[in-house]
Amino acid sequence: MANITLGGNPIETTGSLPAVGSKTPDFKLTATDLSTKSMSDYKGNRLVLNIFPSIDTGTCAQSVRTFNEKASELADTKVLCISKDLPFALARFCGAEGLDNVESLSDFKTGDFGKDYGLTFKTGPLETLLSRCIVVVDKDGTILHTEQVSEIKDEPNYEAALKSLS
């Protein structure tokens, strides 16, 4: 379980992120076209999983914008922006912002992604939403880097995530 804060107030998650060097857990997430996506859909690509509570907050929206900008420079890499937002909200945001270098996916149907990755909020006002995390995965599905952002209002360390791909 990760101990993080929201405005300095402690919040717990359901577990801990998968370990660097381990294989990434499979997932079934809903794309903005309502199709189901899993790890096998990204075989042969490096992945940056940008995970956050809701696209409707400033920090979450900024992380999607920043990774969209950085993703255009990354070869064989997909940036997956993952939350429990409805696919319609994710599509609306990316469409309005003109963001086409990231892919938005939702864990709204089952919440299994958050449970399997150990990052669902267990306590606090955002209980059941996904905490702010980064998971970077190589082409073989091995985890290269993780970050559980300790203060949920803070942005992730973009440079550390991207550096793990070099």
Results as ranks from 00 to 15, higher is better:
residue 145 H to I: 13
residue 163 K to N: 07
residue 37 K to V: 05
residue 125 P to F: 15
residue 128 T to S: 14
residue 118 G to V: 06
residue 156 P to C: 05
residue 29 L to E: 02
residue 86 L to S: 12
residue 128 T to A: 09
residue 72 S to E: 12
residue 72 S to L: 12
residue 37 K to E: 01
residue 130 L to G: 01
residue 104 S to H: 08
residue 124 G to Q: 04
residue 92 R to S: 13
residue 141 G to I: 01
residue 121 F to T: 02
residue 53 P to I: 14
residue 38 S to C: 06
residue 84 K to R: 14
residue 58 G to F: 14
residue 58 G to W: 10
residue 82 I to G: 04
residue 153 K to W: 04
residue 129 L to W: 00
residue 111 G to Y: 06
residue 166 S to P: 13
residue 38 S to M: 03
residue 48 V to S: 01
residue 107 D to C: 11
residue 28 K to Y: 00
residue 95 G to K: 08
residue 106 S to H: 06
residue 63 S to M: 11
residue 20 V to I: 12
residue 144 L to R: 04
residue 132 R to M: 07
residue 128 T to D: 07
residue 111 G to P: 08
residue 139 K to I: 09
residue 142 T to W: 08
residue 146 T to M: 12
residue 6 L to C: 03
residue 134 I to Y: 08
residue 81 C to N: 10
residue 28 K to V: 05
residue 35 S to R: 03
residue 108 F to D: 00
residue 135 V to P: 04
residue 100 D to R: 11
residue 8 G to P: 01
residue 157 N to I: 12
residue 110 T to V: 03
residue 77 T to D: 02
residue 156 P to G: 01
residue 41 D to R: 08
residue 104 S to R: 03
residue 37 K to I: 08
residue 150 S to G: 10
residue 149 V to F: 07
residue 31 A to Y: 09
residue 62 Q to M: 11
residue 104 S to G: 10
residue 33 D to E: 05
residue 152 I to D: 10
residue 22 S to K: 12
residue 67 F to M: 00
residue 14 T to C: 15
residue 79 V to A: 02
residue 24 T to V: 15
residue 97 E to H: 07
residue 65 R to Q: 10
residue 20 V to S: 01
residue 108 F to K: 11
residue 128 T to R: 12
residue 76 D to I: 14
residue 122 K to C: 00
residue 93 F to N: 05
residue 12 E to P: 11
residue 71 A to G: 10
residue 55 I to C: 03
residue 51 I to L: 11
residue 23 K to C: 06
